[in-house]
Each structure stands twice: as C-alpha cells, then as structure tokens.
Design a protein around this nucleic acid. Sequence first.
DNA 1: CTACCAACCTACTGTGTCAATAGGTTTTTA
DNA 2: TAAAAACCTATTGACACAGTAGGTTGGTAG
Lengths: 131, 131
Amino acid sequence: MISTRGRYALRVMIDLAQNENGKYIPLKDIAERQDISKKYLEIIVKDMVAGGLLTGASGKGGGYKLCRKPEDYPVGEILELMEGSLSSVACLAAKDNSCPRKNACRTLPMWEEYDRLVHDFFYSKTLRDLL
Amino acid sequence: MISTRGRYALRVMIDLAQNENGKYIPLKDIAERQDISKKYLEIIVKDMVAGGLLTGASGKGGGYKLCRKPEDYPVGEILELMEGSLSSVACLAAKDNSCPRKNACRTLPMWEEYDRLVHDFFYSKTLRDLL
DNA sequence: CTACCAACCTACTGTGTCAATAGGTTTTTA
DNA sequence: TAAAAACCTATTGACACAGTAGGTTGGTAG
C-alpha cells in the first residue's frame, strides 16, 4: 500500500508544476493549497531534494522548484524514492538476495513477474500524465 | 507489500495440494515441512477456513484439506482474504468511498488503473499455476 | 471408555513503521 | 538588520506485524 510519503510527494510535484512561475515556491503555500501539515511536508520534501527530484533555496524568496520538465519525471522514480522500494515481497526488496528458500520457492516466479508489471506500469507514466 | 499472512497462506495451499492423499493433513506436518511456527500458522489457517478456502477437522486423524480443485482457487482470492485488500491506496481500500478530494484528485485515475491491473494479474493466476 | 491427538480459542508481547508534532538553527534577500 | 524560508534533531501516539503462551473442545483409535 502506497503511504502518505509517496502520495504527498506526488501532490507536491503536481502543485509545483501547476504553479510554476520561474521562481521558488515556498512550502507554506504548497501546504496550504494541498491542506497538508507543513511540518510533515518538510520531512518529505527534504528527501525529495536529496533524491534529486527538486531543488531548494533557503532564505527570503526561497522555496522549492522542479529541476526537470514534467515529462522527465517517471512516476515510478518518485514512488520508489519515497517508498524505498516498490517490491511486493521482502525477499525481492532486500538487496542481498538471500532468501534460503529461493531455489525451491514455488511462488517466487509469480512475485518476480508481478514486480516487473508494477515497475513497468509506474515507469510508463510521468508527472506530465498527471497534470 | 504482501505480508507473511498472504505468503504463508499460499505456501499452506501449495503444501496441501502437493501432499494431497484424500485424508486430512495435520498442521504439525505442514509447519514442519514449511519451517513455519505452527502456533502462528494456526491463526492464519483459522482465517482460511472462515474464508472458505479450506475445511478443517478436529480430533485424531483431523487436520486440513483443500475444498476445491487447485485450478478453482484464484491467487487473488487467497491474497485478498488474507491481506484484507489489494488496493494500492487507502481511499480505494476504504469501503465508504469518502475521500473529500476525490473529484479534484489528479492521481486517483492512476490508482484506479493500477488497482485494476493488480486485480487482473492475481485473478488470472490460480493455485494450479503455482504447482 | 479413555487416552491421545488435533483443531480451536483467548490473551499477551516485543518490535517497528507511520504520520505527525515541537522547537530550534542557519541561510538568504529585501 | 529584520523577515522569511529552508534545514535539523528529537519526540510521540497509534497501530500493525509476527509471533508466543497456555488452555479448551472435539473426534477417533485402541
């Protein structure tokens, strides 16, 4: 299940795209328009900057701004960054690939097929498609 | 992310199908073969009986048994029963359909499309496909 | 008829994540 | 130099997950 981190991140991106004016947009405005706690958004937006989705500027006149064109943001990239992983099961989300049952597991192929489906779905959509 | 409830349920079903012999199969055997805590499986299997996936029999010679042919168990039904819902977001999982932003929401169509994809994927597979 | 086996039932617990909240510090510009 | 904004650290309450523990009921084999 997609959490508020992923969903709010998407809403922030959409809000930034819709209110784009060349300048930085303060989080206060976004929080008010989207009716989300500004304090909570700070945490989320910080990770978005760290993940290369946005650029931020401190000080008066500061705020946040998209750093690519909307069509260059795959939805999958945004969700993967915020949710950690889009994998359906723990043994595929883990980097170490270490499930001891992996060779005998009768369900693993299904999870792998499912993960590909999910990945392809979200990477075939971009921020532009949501506007 | 699919939890142990859904994954263990699937493994129990597969185990029952593979070891089918006309008789009831005690949970103890399943737990040993699958290397899962019997106590924890009790909770899971109880819900599977309540959900109409299995029949259980008490007393000596008792245990559990599939009550349909493997091809008549859609994987989606099993997962939906155990996970509560396969919906990607809270506003679609909720029965009351009450998100106040629903008309203006720019992401809802994507979640709906995604939910259909997931549903179709898991309902197109049956227990038979996992054997 | 009774001992055993197995399902069934209720309650509890430790761990971790989610969704925030609170309060401060630094940075920038008007 | 004062305001505005991002940035940083810490804390919290609620809840779900993944079990554990111990007892009760029910059916069957000897």
